[in-house]
Design a protein around this nucleic acid. Structure first.
Lengths: 228, 228
DNA sequence: CGGTTAATTGATGTGGGTCAAAAGCAGTGG
DNA sequence: CCACTGCTTTTGACCCACATCAATTAACCG
């Protein structure tokens, strides 16, 4: 079993073993797999463990009472479910698997000890908290102020950069397991309208999205559309 | 000079003197005032100080290149400009005064020492970071998924609760220095539409907003409209 | 008193939602 | 190999929540 991304992630930053072997379970570290579409974490549930995605894609979301849902963030291999989960027992969002995933869990107390052995402002956890906050507030501005094309372009750029940070892309082609419904629930549109905008992008030779692959044809134009 | 709110805020939580006396300036702590409408902090600017609002109202925002702006959060007396500013030198948003304000600044190094003398997960800063993250993600869901009435009701409820936590309200009347344009820039609508919705709320005897005072007539109904 | 800024109101326009049908595209199993 | 099923995407027709534009009123203020 391999975990092609783990070098770049949260585990290596903390010198934690990636724990991809189910036999490696012990009292402060354990391991789990889950199929695509399965809910992995439920909003409000408490755990004394902090989770890290080791393989596959997942997403944080909030379920609304009227049936809608807001996707908050997509998790890539190496990402902790949430950087602030180090501080809070109860999660303030749910998590669902987008593809088949592998998850590691670490006892929160253990992680906290490793993090705060020497309180360094430049620690990977601190960095992660800061960049999460930046991303979230910036995305707030996108949802509050930008029209459909810009929202979608922004999301694509954001994901492209995160994927590219982990894996070298060949010819601007990126693995992209999202359905249009996921894009819609992220940027606050309907899947019907997402389909229309993506068709436009394809016609205008900006990006082409199909079969789980995102192909960027005109990056400059995408950036022109998707920047704040 | 009085600072009626300060007992509830960030300073007292850290046992910091509120520094309301301009003469009290020294090398790790200083003090400033600013008039309503004045920009207090600029996105991207760096400082080795952490700022706390001592009196008055202010707001965090992001300025868009197309002229729009997204208001991220309203700051009430006792609020730090941002809880994560403890970790980052450069601010990722701007801050503007809504009323005449009083601001204290503390050397970041000093604050950090006091915070992490004993790394306690229940420290006020930790709490503040966690609740900020919760608020922001919840508001993301509101912007992404909710129609105008719900957005505005949600914002009003959110502010009411925060005001009430600091000051006892008389007959459901709250100080409320926002212009309709501020509401609009927060919830992603135009001020014209905000005016229409507020008129509806007034007609339906839910809330009445005028002359800097927010009067809640039917809290139950407001909560029915403004909850997720 | 004119000048400025904020709120209101009306008329009209439009971006994106809703509804529904069709088409593509796996699997799956006969 | 082909029908059958379920899921996703596409497309078209129509609708509506909210934006835009513009005029009016109100409040404030030097």
């Amino acid at each position: 079993m391999t975990c092609s991304y783990r070098e770049a992630g949260f585990c290596s930053a903390l010198s934690l073993p990636p724990s991809l072997d189910p036999q490696a379970d012990n009292n402060w570290q354990h391991f789990k797999g889950a199929d695509a579409g399965k809910q992995i974490l439920t909003k409000g549930s408490s755990s004394d463990h902090v989770f890290v995605l080791c393989a596959g894609w997942a997403f944080q979301y909030i379920q609304l009472s009227d049936g809608g849902r807001q996707i908050l963030k997509f998790l890539l291999p190496g990402d902790p479910f949430s950087s602030i989960s180090i501080f809070e027992e109860a999660s303030h969002f749910s998590v669902k698997a987008l593809t088949r995933v592998q998850i590691s869990g670490f006892a929160r107390s253990e992680i906290r000890n490793r993090c705060f052995a020497e309180p360094d402002a430049q620690s990977p956890i601190t960095q992660s908290i800061v960049s999460d906050a930046r991303d979230t507030t910036e995305f707030l501005a996108v949802l509050g102020q930008c029209p459909a094309e810009q929202r979608i372009a922004y999301l694509l750029l954001h994901l492209i950069r995160r994927i590219a940070a982990r894996r070298v892309s060949r010819e601007q082609r990126y693995p992209f397991p999202l359905r249009q419904q996921h894009i819609a629930d992220t940027v606050g549109l309907t899947s019907v309208h997402v389909s229309r905008v993506l068709s436009l992008f394809r016609d205008r030779r900006i990006v082409a999205l199909s079969e789980g692959v995102l192909e960027v044809v005109d990056l400059a134009e995408l950036e022109r559309i998707g920047s704040l």
